[in-house]
């Protein structure tokens, strides 16, 4: 709680809006959000680290500054990319608190209300849709473009990741609590469903290519049989994974069968 807000009076000189360079600095520091992730406060230290340059500017008095830092050292946890929206929103609220237009509780409530829903949104879109889609697509491209597939992976993924992260930060800073409406319009869950289909299709193509290419290459006269065996193993694995059989067990089982075939043939 700032000293000014504590007494219910505006600070003597209302602070000017945060300069663009400082906003950029906060954004860059937010990339370290999870540097000291811990089970008690989770991303608390990362959030305080990110917004500190802005707090120092908004609260010239040491007491106000200390109160502001302390309220961001409380428990905080959300998706690390979508956190950019909350970091932007924290600056939106802190500017108003520093001007005496809001109580400090407003920023605490803002974080508490948004961190859960945004974590679910970020997990669903980035971790469970975009990353599998780009990863499977890049893996499927390995036979065509070899090591460049790794470059394609990074470019495709980060084009979306960094653009959205910067957009979310700007959205949070401009709109504060109203960012939720704008975020709903972006329809990330709908786009995520389409990306998951890309992941499944790419994985299917990879399975077929790997079995045929390496099977025929390594099998010699038995190449077609090895390729067909690998394809069959892949198809069986798909259903066994669905029945909760461990991926490790399947990996060792397939290797064991191949080694046995190599010894006998």
């Amino acid at each position: 709680m700032s000293a000014g807000a504590d007494k219910g009076a505006a600070p003597p000189t209302p602070p000017a809006p945060l300069p663009r360079l400082l906003l950029f600095r906060v954004f860059l520091r937010s990339l370290f959000l999870q540097a000291s992730w811990n089970p008690q406060g989770m991303q608390n230290l990362g959030l305080a680290y990110a917004v500190y340059p802005a707090l120092r500017r908004l609260y010239p008095d040491p007491e106000g500054q200390a109160s502001a830092v302390r309220r961001h050292l409380a428990f905080f946890n959300t998706h690390p990319y979508v956190a950019a929206a909350i970091v932007g929103g924290v600056l939106f609220h802190e500017e108003r608190i520093a001007r005496g237009e809001e109580r400090p509780e407003a920023v605490v409530a803002f974080k508490a209300a948004l961190m859960g829903p945004l974590a679910a949104l970020g997990d669903g879109f980035f971790w469970l849709s975009l990353r599998p889609a780009v990863g499977a697509l890049a893996a499927a491209l390995v036979p065509v473009i070899f090591a460049w597939a790794a470059v394609v992976y990074l470019v495709l993924y980060n084009l979306v990741h960094l653009t959205l992260r910067a957009w979310l930060f700007a959205l949070g800073y401009r709109l504060g609590d109203r960012l939720v409406e704008r975020l709903a319009q972006a329809n990330l869950p709908g786009r995520g469903a389409r990306l998951r289909a890309v992941a499944a299709a790419s994985a299917g193509a990879s399975a077929a290519y790997l079995a045929m290419h390496f099977g025929s290459q390594q099998g010699g006269a038995w190449g077609p049989a090895l390729a067909a065996g690998c394809l069959g193993m892949g198809a069986v694995s798909y259903f066994l994974v669905g029945r909760k059989l461990s991926g490790y067990a399947l990996l060792y089982l397939s290797a064991g069968l191949a080694v046995l075939a190599g010894a006998l043939l």
Binding site: A136, L210, A211, L226, L231, S237, Y238, A258, G262
Partner: peptide, 16 residues
């Protein structure tokens, strides 16, 4: 021969 067999399994796990 184990490499393509494991790769096929990994791709099936990825699809799942």
């Amino acid at each position: 021969g184990a490499f393509p067999a494991m790769a096929s399994v990994a791709a099936a796990i990825a699809a799942r």
